[in-house]
């Protein structure tokens, strides 16, 4: 099995990791760095539970090879709260009742964070478009959309 040593930034920390060539970014985060906030729902780019920021843009970490991440900057759900304080989106979505089982939440928070970064005042439609790739089996999306809308006002 071929291995590669990569150095990257994950949630503001520089990490050097030896990764098998067939390891995905998702597997590296969970298995090598013990960042288990990022979830594996489908391993196929469909569900969005594995969404992380890669160089500032949300990607499905199950569809990225760890070996491709040399020099990359990654942010996972663990990197959203600062000094023990939830980010605005996390706080607003929790308050709006947008979290039930919580499995979609890490990916949802990353997509919402990226949306507000590129568009601080999204319409309902734009919010829904931004989370098309984040499936939620529990909430019916309504409360999540409301939470993201509230976060935009904060």
């Amino acid at each position: 099995m071929a291995y590669q040593r990569i150095t990257l930034t994950v949630n503001d920390l520089t990490e050097t990791v030896d990764v098998p060539h067939n390891m995905t970014l998702l597997q590296m985060l969970r298995q090598k760095l013990s960042l288990t906030g990022t979830k594996n729902g489908c391993s196929a780019g469909e569900c969005g539970a594995c969404t992380v920021l890669m160089n500032g843009e949300p990607v499905n970490s199950c569809m990225v090879l760890a070996a491709e991440c040399e020099g990359a900057t990654i942010v996972t759900v663990e990197g959203l709260a600062k000094n023990g304080k939830l980010s605005k989106v996390q706080e607003a979505v929790a308050k709006a009742g947008g979290v039930q089982c919580g499995f979609c939440t890490p990916g949802m928070m990353i997509s919402a964070t990226a949306l507000l970064e590129r568009n601080p005042n999204p319409t309902d439609e734009e919010i829904r478009q931004a989370i098309v790739g984040n499936l939620c089996r529990c909430t019916g999306y309504f409360r999540i959309v409301n939470g993201i809308k509230e976060a935009a006002k904060m």
Binding site: G48, M54, E57, P58, V59, N60, S111, Q129, V132, G133
Partner: peptide, 9 residues
Amino acid sequence: VASYQLRNR
């Protein structure tokens, strides 16, 4: 095509 995050790849 697909979703926003997939279109980033």
